Simulated scan of single mutants.
Amino acid sequence: MAAFPLDIARIYLEPAVEEHARGREILARFSQAERIPVASHWRIPELRGGDPGDYLAAKRKALVLGVKKGLTFRPNGRSADFIAPSSSNGCAMACAYCYVARRKGHANPISVFVNIEPILAATARHATRQGPKTVPNQVDPQSWVYDLGENGDLSVDAAISDNVRDLVSLFRSLPNAKGSFATKWVNPDLVGYDPQGRTRIRMSLMPPGLAKLLDVRTSPVAERIAAIPDLHRAGYEVHLNFSPVVLHEGWEAEWGALFEMLDDLLPAAVKDQLAAEIIMLTHNRDLHEINLAWHPKAEDLLWRPDIQEQKVSESGGVNLRYRTGWKGRWLQRFKDLLAARMPYCRVRYAF
C-alpha cells in the first residue's frame, strides 16, 4: 500500500478549536506537532508565501484546524443533488490538475473543521425538508445525494479524525438521502464504517501511466481498483469517476487497457450496480504557472493550447478546456470505447 501522505509537524489552529471535542481529539492524535495559533483558517501568510518550488512540503507537514462558519447547501445536479457544507477543505495529495481554489496558499493543505455536530444537524434538517425523491434523475433514482467532499478527499480525512465516520453514520439514519464523495486514496478503515448502502464512494481512475505522472501522492491505480470489491462488500455503493480525461496521442489505447483491467477484476456484484462519471480536463492558467515551478513535466500534457481554448470562469479565473466541437467528438469516442469494453457500466454524468 502507498505510504500515508501526512507527517504532521505543524498545526495551525483557530482560537475556538480547543473548545470542541473533535478539536481536542485531533490535537491529542498529533500531540508531537507544533501548535501555531491563527486568527482564521483562510488567512495564514506563512502558507501563502510558501516556496512554489517546494509545493509538496505544506501538504505533507501542515494541518489546519478551524471552525466551519457557513452551513449552506448548494444545488448541483451533476455528481450530486446538493453540495453539503464541508467538514474539511484542501488535500494532502497534489494532483497536478486539481481545480480546488488555493485560498490558503499555493498548496492548500488540509483544513479540518472541528464543529462536526452542527454540520451533521444541518444536513439532517435539509434532507428532512426535501421529503421523498419522487422524480428520478441522473444523480440517483430514489435518494437525494449530498456531495460531502467537494474540496478534498475524505479517505485521507478519515485518518485525521472521526468526521467521516460520523457522516457515514448520519446517512444510515436518513432514509431519503445518500452521502457521496470521490477518492484517490485507499483507506482500509472505511470498510468498518457500516454504511448500509447509504454512502456512495466514487473511485477516481485514469490510466496507470498517466496517474503516475499526474496523480501525485495518491494511491496507485491498481490499489484503487483492488479496493473496490472490499468497499462494496462493506456496504458502500461504489461508482467510478473517470476524471480527468487528458487527451494526448495514444489516449484511446490507454483507456481501453484500463477498461479491460476493470472488466477482468471487478466481481459481478459490483458490475451490477456500476455507474460512472466522465469529466474532460479543464486546466487553469494560475495552476499552470505553479506547476511549472515544481512539476513541469505534467504541463506537457495539461497545457495544450493547440487543442484547447480559453474560458473565463465566473470568479474571473482563466481556464483552458478542449475546443468546442472537438471536445464533444472526443467525449463521444470515450463513451463508445467504454460501452464496447464495459457495456454494463452506465454513464451517469459526462462533461
Rank of each mutant, 00 (worst) to 15 (best):
V238C: 14
C98Y: 01
V135F: 12
F242Q: 09
S40F: 04
P52R: 02
P343F: 14
V347A: 04
L47V: 08
G149L: 02
S169C: 13
R333P: 11
G250N: 13
T282A: 10
C95A: 03
I119V: 12
P208I: 13
A80D: 09
G256I: 07
D147V: 13
A177C: 08
P195Y: 12
L170I: 09
N108L: 10
E25R: 04
E34H: 02
P37K: 05
R233G: 08
G235Q: 12
V221D: 02
A159Y: 04
P136C: 03
D153E: 05
N291T: 05
G192C: 05
D300F: 00
V38A: 06
P207A: 06
L287A: 02
P188E: 04
V112C: 04
T123I: 12
T282K: 05
W144F: 14
W330V: 15
N319M: 12
S40M: 07
H239M: 07
I279C: 09
G149K: 08
F171E: 09
G250F: 14
E314D: 04
Q310H: 12
G325N: 11
R172N: 10
S313Y: 06
H283R: 07
A124Y: 11
L213N: 00
E277C: 10
E223Y: 09
Q308R: 00
T218M: 04
L287D: 04
A182G: 15
Q196D: 11
L6Q: 14
A350D: 15
E299D: 13
H232V: 08
G53F: 05
G149P: 08
R10H: 12
E252S: 13
R43M: 10
A101K: 02
D81N: 13
G66L: 00
F181D: 08
I225K: 01
P5A: 12
T123L: 12
K178W: 06
L71R: 08
I307C: 11
R346W: 13
E46A: 15
R333M: 14
W303Q: 07
E117C: 03
P85Y: 08
P37Y: 06
N76T: 09
A182I: 06
V17Q: 05
L63I: 08
D215P: 03
I36S: 03
